[in-house]
Design a protein around this nucleic acid. Sequence first.
DNA 1: TACATAATTAGACAAATAACTAATTAAGTG
DNA 2: CACTTAATTAGTTATTTGTCTAATTATGTA
Lengths: 103, 103
Amino acid sequence: MASQNKVFKALADPTRREILNMLRRKEMTAGELAKRFDMTKPSMSHHFSVLKGADLIVSRRDGQQIWYALNTTVVQDILTWALGLAHESGTQKVKLRTANNEI
Amino acid sequence: MASQNKVFKALADPTRREILNMLRRKEMTAGELAKRFDMTKPSMSHHFSVLKGADLIVSRRDGQQIWYALNTTVVQDILTWALGLAHESGTQKVKLRTANNEI
DNA sequence: TACATAATTAGACAAATAACTAATTAAGTG
DNA sequence: CACTTAATTAGTTATTTGTCTAATTATGTA
């Protein structure tokens, strides 16, 4: 995990959690994302920067626009952390699968 | 979930995450917990209060001591949230089981 | 009651955070 | 080049957060 602390600090803000939610299905540009919040673009830029610093999102430039996408690897790390809490360690091994039995 | 925002704010501090980790296996008293951190008891008390406010821990008094224990229900809520992020919703249903196939 | 122990509450303060406006960078277009 | 659009960076400010010391509450015991 990038830095566990950066990840949890990033998740502490509701705007940033909502950004992650919006990126769940598809990548989006900074402008597209910003439009959906009642906040200035510089403020949104700051949130993108915090999410990037935590490795929760990745970005790429395409012309004038910057596309942001969820980094599911770090989300998996959060899951692993929460699983460690949820199930007393040592006594139980955990498996995490989809309905189709994929990892 | 108590209030999703309170939960994530509570998780944002490394001391509080460590407290949760220590409560993973067994409940502990405020004093026992406080001893293990390089911090005053009032500071620890504050962290307990934040964790309680987020419903991440529960407490009971036994004589002079207050016992704290992890509330695994809310930890499950965090898992559910992270699962929602990790797997694009709609296309996949998720199951979460232990090695013994318990829920 | 008087004292000790466990823990919290109150209040102060420095550091971190999230928001804004103004300025800047980068890319596209006439 | 001049201008527009997309986005970020710089700098300011109010609020929140984490820590401390001092005071208080609650319980147990001689």
